[in-house]
């Protein structure tokens, strides 16, 4: 199964040439998965059809679209929205993926929320700190070398960068907290 997964990843990398990866982002459902219809259960003991309408409190019904637009404002978005496009880094530091990144022999695709898939993991009773990069396609070994060079040049660790490539899962893990440096490197490359 894992081999098949890998093969499909390799085929996608080679055949598609990255064009689909760049543009095609899955439609992610933002709305809660709960079925709200289950929440409301009418009182079975009350026979609504036989109720004396005159005893009920008076009310008026409105279907004014001018009022309904305020209700529509309260309904959460069904899908993750497409972010704005920025040529430079946005004020918050979020960057638009660059088309030039497709020319590289490796590619890191964004998450469903349009963020860079870089995570900080703490394991083994907080003894092991790792930075994990996911969603890597293409020549992952070359990417590992490039990233290692960059971290050696920029961080204080120099020759102590311990970097592990997992080709099967398409992930790279680095010992230590290098999240902001890895993100900076990815910004430079355009991922």
């Amino acid at each position: 199964m894992a081999a098949l997964q890998f093969l499909s990843r390799a085929a996608r990398t080679v055949v598609v040439g990255g064009t689909n990866r760049f543009t095609a982002l899955a439609a992610i459902n933002l709305a809660p998965k709960r079925n709200y219809a289950d929440d409301y259960k009418p009182d079975q003991s009350v026979m609504y059809d036989e109720l004396d309408q005159s005893t009920l409190p008076k009310f008026e019904t409105s279907n004014d679209p001018a009022e309904w637009q305020f209700v529509e404002r309260l309904i959460p978005l069904a899908l993750v929205p497409t972010p704005k496009s920025f040529t430079e880094p946005s004020p918050s530091g979020w960057t638009t993926p660059k088309k030039d990144a497709l020319k590289l022999p490796y590619f890191v695709s964004r998450t469903k929320n349009h963020m860079q898939p870089v995570y900080y993991r703490i394991k083994e009773r907080s003894l092991r700190h790792t930075t994990v990069i996911k969603n890597i396609d293409g020549d992952i070994w070359l990417m590992g070398e490039h990233l290692k060079d960059y971290l050696k040049r920029n961080t204080k660790k120099k020759d102590l960068i311990a970097l592990k490539v997992n080709e099967m899962n398409g992930t790279i893990s680095v010992r230590g907290d290098h999240v902001s440096w890895v993100k900076k490197w990815m910004d430079e490359k355009g991922f």
């Binding site: 409190p57 008076k58 009310f59 008026e60 019904t61 409105s62 279907n63 004014d64 009022e67 309904w68 637009q69 305020f70 209700v71 404002r73 309260l74 309904i75």
Partner: peptide, 25 residues
């Protein structure tokens, strides 16, 4: 909520808003 008053009941299915008219409400 902006544009909606307290006491109103919203029917999402039929897109209707019910407004109370009783004085005590």
């Amino acid at each position: 909520f902006y544009g909606l008053e307290p006491g109103w009941v919203v029917n999402l299915k039929d897109k209707l808003i019910f407004k109370p008219k009783e004085d005590y409400l």
